[in-house]
Simulated scan of single mutants.
Amino acid sequence: MSYRQSSMSNRIKLLALAGVAAIALNACASPRGHSGGTATPDFSSMSNEAKHAAVQDLGAKFQQNPNKQSAIYFAAALRAIGQTGQAVSVLEQAQLKYKNDQDVALAYAKALAEDGKFNRAINVLDASIRLERPDWNALSVKGAVFDQMGQNAEARALYNQALVIAPNEPSLYANLGLSYAMSNQLDQAEKALRRAVSMPKATRKIRLNLALIVGLQGRFDEARSLYARELPAADVEANMAYIRALLTQQNKWDRIKSSS
């Protein structure tokens, strides 16, 4: 992989983890798709102010009652403000208390991966996945870790395995699409994300990621239209500027301008 492709892949990873650039929404945290139990909430769409407020609130709840849910929620909020090491510490203690609990294991693996401890994350996931009846969400998290390690083919195999179990789960198609984007297969990425967007449980984040992939293929009017359905005008233009910056970095911007 070339330096520019690698840089693009790293930026796609960040977008997959943290949401599309320049979005500041005062949204409530919402759990990601899960097959049961306590899901890990996603704070990525919240404003920085709201994220820090969530850390204060959930931290106080965790101190008052350090149970399974409070640990998972507090760690998710810490991850959202970049305190990945502290999130790992919170969930490390939770895992000692709630041994063999898959919800804690998944949250712990996510925190480890965001803290750059990929091999430890894989070990935690492998210990929690039951080979005779794997959980689709665990397979998805393991795939996301592989994507962050640059092992995109292995990641996609896991997403496809998870889709056999949960064929109507849009987050799996979204992850598949972002995985293709990391290896610069934007047509395949768009196909998977369009499939995700067509599903009833598709989230705003998935629709914004589709807009990103459309824009990266040089279809700016279409990308702007997709963004405009979800964002205020200022954020639409900020995202379009970000797309142009990515394309300029790849030396694609001049080719797109000359062909338009």
Rank of each mutant, 00 (worst) to 15 (best):
I72T: 06
A60F: 14
A144G: 10
S225V: 02
I165N: 02
Q217I: 05
Y242R: 07
E114W: 11
M46S: 14
A39H: 06
S89I: 03
N160P: 10
I165M: 12
S44K: 05
A22M: 04
V141Y: 10
R156D: 05
V104D: 01
K142Y: 13
A75P: 02
D126L: 05
Q102G: 00
S183A: 04
A157T: 12
N119G: 01
L231T: 10
E132V: 15
A189N: 10
A109E: 02
N67K: 04
I12G: 01
N209Y: 08
P31Q: 00
P66F: 00
R156E: 09
E237Y: 10
A107F: 06
S70A: 11
N26D: 13
L158F: 15
Q102T: 02
A21C: 06
L106I: 14
R255L: 13
I165A: 12
N26I: 03
M46C: 12
L186R: 11
Q86Y: 03
D115P: 05
W136L: 05
F43S: 08
I206A: 08
A202C: 03
D147H: 11
Q5E: 10
N123P: 04
M182W: 12
R32H: 14
A153Q: 10
M199T: 12
R224T: 14
S2T: 15
K13S: 15
G143D: 01
S258V: 07
L96M: 11
S47V: 09
D135T: 07
R207S: 08
K205L: 03
S225R: 06
C28H: 01
Q63V: 13
A16Q: 08
L216V: 15
A155I: 10
L96V: 15
N10S: 07
L158T: 15
L25Q: 13
A144Y: 10
L112Y: 14
T84P: 07
I12S: 02
D57M: 06
K252D: 01
V20K: 00
L186N: 07
A39T: 07
V214I: 14
A174F: 14
I122S: 03
L246Q: 15
R11K: 08
D254G: 04
S6A: 10
A53K: 09
M1K: 04
L106H: 11
A166I: 08
A80T: 08
N209H: 13
E190V: 14
Y3S: 10
S35E: 04
L25V: 14
S183M: 04
V197C: 09
A29Y: 03
V124D: 01
A155H: 03
Q95P: 05
A223H: 05
R130P: 08
I81Q: 03
G177N: 02
S89P: 05
Q188T: 09
A22W: 03
K257Q: 08
A27F: 12
Y180P: 06
